[in-house]
């Protein structure tokens, strides 16, 4: 997100009051850690140093390699990998369907394994390799699974689709795509309300039987 100070809406009073920073600084128990006297704290707030302090005490530096690109970020420990991808890295291909591990829309690969990024803290993924739907195609050349989803119409609204595709690729790599029944079971962590299941199964079967590496 860009610096808020630089942002002003046309036609509005540009002096939008933002007391929250100051309030935060006055309240924050973390400040005891830096042993600032209340006076200094308020001064710090007035100097808008609070975000910098928050940066140091509320946030942690992490390194994520996402789709082959290294990112050094500063995140709050409570930020999930899903929200970091979507809100900080603008990688919105990974979807939020429930935020509680109950739908699979947020499926990504961490070090090659499919996981729910909504239940993964960003700080826990630090140092790991993450692949999202945006990292599957090689340039303009779609991944075979993406091609198969297109061909078999493995989606309608497309919202569960990135998660389905990430899961489908993993399903084959794990060796769980040996029969229709097995695919159905091992794709059950990805809910599709539009009801594209049979088409998804067909797409996976075709990729599995095809010669292309997955």
């Amino acid at each position: 997100m860009e610096d808020e100070k630089d942002y002003a809406l046309p036609g509005f009073d540009t002096e939008a009051k933002d007391n929250s920073r100051r309030n935060f600084l006055k309240q924050s128990t973390l400040l005891t850690a830096v042993a600032l006297t209340p006076g200094t704290a308020i001064k710090a707030a007035d100097m808008r140093l609070d975000e910098k302090i928050a940066e140091a005490f509320e946030k942690m530096p992490i390194k994520l390699e996402v789709n082959g690109v290294a990112h050094s970020l500063s995140v709050e420990p409570r930020a999930t990998l899903l929200d970091i991808l979507r809100e900080q890295l603008d990688l919105t291909g990974t979807k939020k369907g429930c935020d509680h591990g109950q739908c699979g829309a947020c499926t990504v690969h961490i070090d090659g394994h499919r996981v729910n990024s909504c239940l993964t803290l960003g700080v826990m993924a630090s140092g790991k390799k993450i692949t999202t739907i945006e990292g599957l195609a090689k340039g303009d050349e779609l991944h075979p699974m993406q091609e198969a989803f297109l061909k078999h119409d493995g989606f309608q609204c497309g919202y569960c689709t990135p998660g389905q595709i990430m899961s489908a690729v993993a399903c084959i790599r794990e060796g769980h795509a040996n029969s229709e029944m097995e695919i159905r079971e091992y794709m059950s962590g990805n809910i599709c309300r539009c009801g594209a299941y049979p088409n998804i199964v067909n797409a996976i079967q075709e990729v599995k039987e095809g010669a292309q590496a997955v």
Partner: peptide, 9 residues
Amino acid sequence: GASPQLRNM
């Protein structure tokens, strides 16, 4: 139990 993704975690 759970789902393949959750079992991976």
